[in-house]
Design a protein around this nucleic acid. Structure first.
Length: 749
DNA sequence: GACCTGCTGCGGATTG
C-alpha cells in the first residue's frame, strides 16, 4: 500500500475507483476504455486491491452477472502482463464446457492489448489447440477438472513445463465443487500440481467465485486447507435488487374434472400429468412479455409441462414458443434452445438444473419453480437467473401442484410441499443457504486418484502415494491404516500389484479401468438408451426404466409413440403421436438440511402472513396451521394418528433422521420416515419408551451402518469391500451426536 | 423412485 494513502483520500468511492484503476496494466486500462466502462464496481475495487496488494487466497461471494470474473481477472491479467510465457500463469477452472466457451471469449477480449495468450481445453477443443498449448505454454488456460486429469494421464512428461510457473488458479462457480466428489477430484489435482511448482517460487494463489455460498468456512478450507483463516473474503454489501415473489397453490378439483371443455376422456390420464394442468394454464398466462425459465424438479415434469403449455397456448393464438432443456436431451436440442433463448423472440424454456449455472442465455424476465425446491441453494441459484440487468427486478413464481401423496393423511392436510416452499423462500429472504461440506470419506475418488498417480509416475511406493494424496489436500481425513486397507482391497481385486522392487503398479483390472474413456471423470453416469426418430437422436432414457413398445412418451417437448426398443443397438425408435404419456427417468432422493424442517415448524406455529401467497396458498396455509394447532404438532413431540399409530415429531434433516431410523431398526421397531417426523406402529407410551431406550443405548457408528440405506453408489464403490463401505457410511451418513440430541429434545419437551 | 457435470490417441481417408 502507498504510505501516503491517508484516510481522507480513502473515503470516497470515486477516489478508490481511480486508484484501483491505476493499479491495472495500461493494456487492460485501454481495453476497459474501449469497452465503454465508466467505473469499477465496489467488488472489483476490493478484488483489485486484495489481489495486487497481498499474497492471500481469495473467496469472492457475489451474485451472477455482478462482474466477479472481471473482479478476479482484471488484476490477475495485469500482474501477469509482464511475465506471460514459459508456463501457464493462470488456470481458470469451470464446471461446464459451455461456461468455458463463454468465458474464453470474454477473456480474449480483455487481453486485446496484452501479449498474453488465452487457451481453452475441454473435450470439444481440437487437439491442434491443445498441442499448441503444450508446445508453448503461456498466459491463461481455461479448463475442466476432467481435462486436468487427462493432462496428468496423457501428458505427464509436460506437467513441469505446463504448471511450473503457475501463479493463479481461479475456480468459477465454486459451490458446484463444494460438497461432492468432483470437488474432491479437483482439489486433489490442484494438490498434485503444487508438486510441479518451480523450487523457490511462491506457489500459486487460489481464487474462488460463487453466488451461492451459505457458510464461507468450508469454501475457504477448499481454497486453503492448511489455514482457512488466511483466505480473504470479498463480499459486496446487499445491492437490494427489487424482488417480485409469488407462490401459487392448487387444489384437487382438477383431479375430479381435468378438462371441463373437452368432454369425457377416453383413456385414464396419469394423475401426475393431470395435476400439472392448472399449473400449465397459469404458466401460459404469466409467461407473456419476455423470455422466461421454468424449473421443475423432475425431467418428466419438465417434458409434460412443456407439452401442456404448447397445447394450451395454441387455441388462444398465443405464440408456441415453449422449449425444453435437461440432461437427457441431445446436445443439439439443448444448444438450439440456448440459441433461441439468446435471440430476440420471447420464449419460455422448461428445464431441470441444467440451466442453473451461469451460462449465457440472454435476459430472463421471470423464473418459475414448479414444486418445492430441493434446497435453498438451488432456489437461490435459480432466482439469480432473472433480473440480471441494471434496474431490472428479479421475478420468481413458485407453483405448488396438488400432491400425488401416499403419505399419511395428516401430513397431506399439512400441505407439506407448500409449507416447504414457504420455509425455503423465507430462508432465502433471510440470506441463508445450506452450508456445503466435502464428503468425509470419499474412498471412490481416492481410488481414482491412486490409479491416476500410478499412470502418471509409473511404479510408486505405497508411502509415496499416501504422502502425495493424503498428507495434504482433500484426503487428509484418511488415516494411514485406512489407506493401507484400501490398497489391500484394490490388490485383492487385481486393480493393483506390487512389483519385485516393492513398487505399486497397475494390475490387469486396473489397466482396463484406466484405459477407458470414462476414467477421467469421478462421478457416476447411469447407462442410457438412445431415443431416435428417423435417424435423428433426440436424447436418451435410462436403461433401468425403459418404456414399453407401443406406449407413449413426451420427449424433447413433443408427443411420441414407442415403435421399438432395441437393447442390442441401445436404441429406442419413436414416431410422432397425439397421445400424451409421462416418460420415466431413474433418480434417487437427496438430503434435506435440519434448518429447513425447523423453519417449517416456525411457519406452522406462527401467525405471520406472507404477501407472496395467492388466495389458494393462503387458504392451505390457514388449514395447515389449524391442523397443526388441533393436533398440537408444533409443541407435542408425540401425536396419535389412530388406534395403533404414532407420529414422533423430529423436525430434523435427513441424515439425523436416517440415523434415528437405524437406531430404532436395531431395536427391532418397524418405523417409517415421514419427513417432519417418524411414523410408528404403537401407542404414544410405547414410542416414548422406544426413544428412551435408544437414548440410553450406546451405539457404535459402524454397527449402525447395517441398518442405513444409501441413496446412490459412488463410481468406484464397487471396488471396495464390506469393511471399507461400512467405514465410509459411518463417517458420512451416521450422525450419532445429532441423533442423540434430537432424542433428548423429543423426550424433554 | 431428484437433478447435474466430464472425457484419448491413433490410424487412415478425404479435402484444399
Amino acid at each position: 500500500m502507498d504510505p501516503n494513502d491517508g484516510p481522507s483520500l480513502g473515503g470516497t468511492h470515486e477516489a478508490r475507483d481511480r486508484r484501483a484503476f491505476e493499479l491495472l496494466d495500461p493494456g487492460i486500462q485501454r481495453q476497459l476504455y474501449r469497452m465503454g466502462w465508466t467505473a469499477l464496481r465496489r467488488l472489483q475495487i476490493d478484488a483489485i486491491e486484495t489481489i495486487t496488494g497481498t499474497d492471500q487466497d481469495i473467496l469472492i461471494m457475489a451474485e451472477t452477472a455482478s462482474g466477479k470474473t472481471e473482479a478476479a481477472f482484471l488484476p490477475i491479467l495485469s500482474l501477469l502482463a509482464t511475465e506471460a510465457s514459459g508456463s501457464i500463469r493462470a488456470l481458470y477452472v469451470g464446471p461446464l464446457r459451455a461456461l468455458i466457451n463463454d468465458q474464453f471469449l470474454r477473456m480474449e477480449e480483455l487481453c486485446t492489448f496484452l501479449d498474453l495468450p488465452v487457451f481453452k481445453w475441454h473435450g470439444e477443443v481440437s487437439q491442434t489447440v491443445k498441442h499448441r498449448c503444450i508446445r508453448n505454454p503461456a498466459g491463461v488456460l481455461l479448463i475442466t477438472p476432467e481435462s486436468i486429469e487427462s493432462i496428468f494421464i496423457n501428458q505427464s512428461a509436460h506437467l513441469g513445463r505446463l504448471f511450473g510457473g503457475l501463479r493463479f488458479v481461479v475456480i468459477d462457480e465454486l459451490h458446484a465443487f463444494l460438497g461432492n466428489e468432483r470437488g474432491m477430484h479437483l482439489a486433489s489435482l490442484l494438490t498434485r500440481i503444487h508438486t510441479f511448482q518451480i523450487q523457490g517460487e511462491h506457489g500459486f494463489r487460489e481464487v474462488g467465485l460463487s453466488a451461492t455460498i451459505g457458510d464461507p468456512e468450508p469454501a475457504k478450507a477448499f481454497l486453503h486447507p492448511d489455514d482457512p483463516t488466511q483466505v480473504a473474503l470479498i463480499q459486496p454489501r446487499g445491492e437490494g435488487k427489487e424482488l417480485h415473489l409469488e407462490v401459487h397453490a392448487y387444489d384437487r378439483s382438477v383431479l375430479e374434472n381435468p378438462d371441463p371443455g373437452e368432454g369425457p376422456k377416453s383413456r385414464q390420464e396419469d394423475v401426475r400429468i393431470t395435476r400439472l394442468r392448472p399449473v400449465a394454464h397459469d404458466i401460459v398466462r404469466h409467461c407473456g412479455g419476455g423470455s422466461n425459465l421454468v424449473f421443475a424438479n423432475r425431467k418428466a415434469d419438465v417434458e409434460v409441462l412443456c407439452d401442456l403449455c404448447t397445447e394450451f397456448a395454441a387455441p388462444q393464438g398465443l405464440p408456441q414458443n415453449y422449449l425444453v432443456h435437461h440432461g437427457s436431451l441431445s446436445r443439439d436440442i439443448r444448444e438450439t434452445a440456448e440459441e433461441l433463448m439468446k435471440g430476440s423472440g420471447q420464449r419460455t424454456t422448461f428445464c431441470s438444473s441444467t440451466l442453473e449455472l451461469g451460462i449465457d442465455i440472454g435476459s430472463i424476465r421471470l423464473v418459475g419453480q414448479v414444486g418445492a425446491p430441493w434446497t435453498v441453494a438451488s432456489l437461490k441459484q435459480r432466482l439469480g437467473r432473472s433480473g440480471r440487468h441494471e434496474g431490472e427486478p428479479r421475478r420468481l413464481s413458485i407453483y405448488v401442484p396438488y400432491p400425488v401423496g401416499d403419505e399419511p393423511e395428516l401430513l397431506q392436510r399439512l400441505s407439506y410441499d407448500l409449507i416447504a416452499a414457504i420455509a425455503s423462500t423465507e430462508l432465502l429472504l433471510e440470506g441463508w443457504v445450506e452450508p456445503m461440506y466435502p464428503p468425509a470419506c470419499d474412498l471412490s475418488t481416492l481410488t481414482q486418484q491412486i490409479l491416476s498417480v500410478i499412470v502418471e509416475k509409473g511404479g510408486v511406493r505405497t508411502e509415496a502415494i499416501y504422502d502425495l494424496l493424503c498428507r495434504k489436500g482433500p484426503f487428509r481425513g484418511i488415516e494411514a491404516s485406512l489407506f493401507a486397507k484400501l490398497m489391500r482391497a484394490l490388490g485383492g481385486k487385481d486393480i493393483l500389484e506390487q512389483d519385485p522392487a516393492g513398487e505399486i503398479i497397475l494390475g490387469l483390472e486396473g489397466e482396463k479401468i484406466v484405459e477407458s474413456l470414462d476414467f477421467y471423470g469421478v462421478f457416476n453416469a447411469s447407462k442410457e438408451v438412445k431415443v431416435v426418430h428417423e435417424g435423428r437422436v433426440l436424447g436418451a432414457l435410462p436403461v433401468l426404466v425403459l418404456p414399453k413398445v407401443n406406449s407413449f412418451i413426451v420427449f424433447a417437448g413433443r408427443k411420441w409413440k414407442v415403435l421399438s426398443v432395441d437393447l442390442g443397438e441401445w436404441e429406442i425408435e419413436v414416431e410422432p403421436s397425439v397421445s400424451r404419456g409421462r416418460p420415466k427417468f431413474a433418480g434417487y432422493g437427496g438430503g434435506v438440511h435440519p434448518r429447513l424442517r425447523q423453519k417449517m415448524r416456525e411457519v406452522l406455529s406462527s401467525r405471520a402472513t406472507y404477501a407472496y401467497l395467492d388466495a389458494m396458498a393462503g387458504q392451505f396455509l390457514s388449514t395447515a396451521r389449524e391442523v397443526a394447532r388441533e393436533a398440537d404438532l408444533c409443541k407435542e413431540r408425540f401425536v396419535a394418528l389412530g388406534a395403533n399409530s404414532t407420529l414422533a415429531m423430529t423436525w430434523t434433516g435427513s441424515d439425523i433422521q436416517k440415523t434415528l431410523l437405524a437406531m430404532l431398526g436395531l431395536t427391532d421397531i418397524n418405523c417409517h420416515d415421514a419427513a417432519i417426523g417418524i411414523l410408528f406402529p404403537g401407542s404414544i407410551a410405547e414410542v416414548r419408551e422406544a426413544f428412551a431406550s435408544i437414548k440410553g443405548h450406546s451405539f457404535s457408528p459402524e454397527g449402525l451402518t447395517e441398518c442405513v440405506e444409501r441413496d446412490a453408489d459412488r463410481k468406484f464403490d464397487y471396488l471396495l469391500d464390506e469393511d471399507l463401505l461400512r467405514v465410509m457410511i459411518s463417517r458420512e451418513i451416521i450422525d450419532l451426536d445429532g441423533a442423540k440430541r434430537v432424542c433428548e429434545q423429543i423426550l424433554s419437551e
